[in-house]
């Protein structure tokens, strides 16, 4: 994954080296949806990755899991893959819907005014 590529929900990354692992975990920290970590022992953990320490020892990520009150700290050497499993709530879709609604209303208002002006003989 290059820096220029935006992470999309649903993507899975199996680490091939340490620098890629750091890069993907940093992207997971930046991601506003849940992620699923695959651990080397075969276990999976799904939750929100809200903190990380990737540049100095001890190297770890921290997650909040649904239904668990306390955060879990996971050493990064135990992680072998990350899936961006949850939808991204920061994808701007609700705002796009609001903008589209306002745009539709403005177009309808313009049409209404145009029609009234025509009826009043002020527009051809």
């Amino acid at each position: 994954m290059g820096k220029e590529k935006k992470v999309l929900s649903g993507e899975k990354y199996v680490f091939s080296n340490d620098s890629q692992k750091i890069e993907i975990l940093e992207a997971a920290f930046d991601y506003r949806g849940d992620v699923t970590l695959e651990l080397v022992q075969g276990q999976t953990i799904e939750g929100y990755l809200f903190n990380r320490q990737l540049t100095k020892a001890p190297f770890f990520v921290e997650m909040l899991l649904p239904g668990e009150e306390s955060a879990r700290r996971i050493p990064i050497e135990e992680i072998c893959a990350v899936t961006f499993s949850g939808k991204d709530p920061a994808d701007g879709k609700s705002y796009e819907a609001w903008k589209a609604k306002k745009e539709k209303e403005r177009r309808e208002e313009a049409k209404k005014i145009e029609s009234e002006m025509k009826q009043a003989g002020l527009l051809d």
Binding site: R32, L64, L65, P66
Partner: peptide, 18 residues
């Protein structure tokens, strides 16, 4: 609310419920 210029509230439900 979900304001256009706010970057504070975009989280999964289990985080928003905390």
């Amino acid at each position: 609310l979900a304001c256009a210029g706010c970057g504070k509230i975009q989280y999964p439900d289990h985080i928003l419920n905390r």
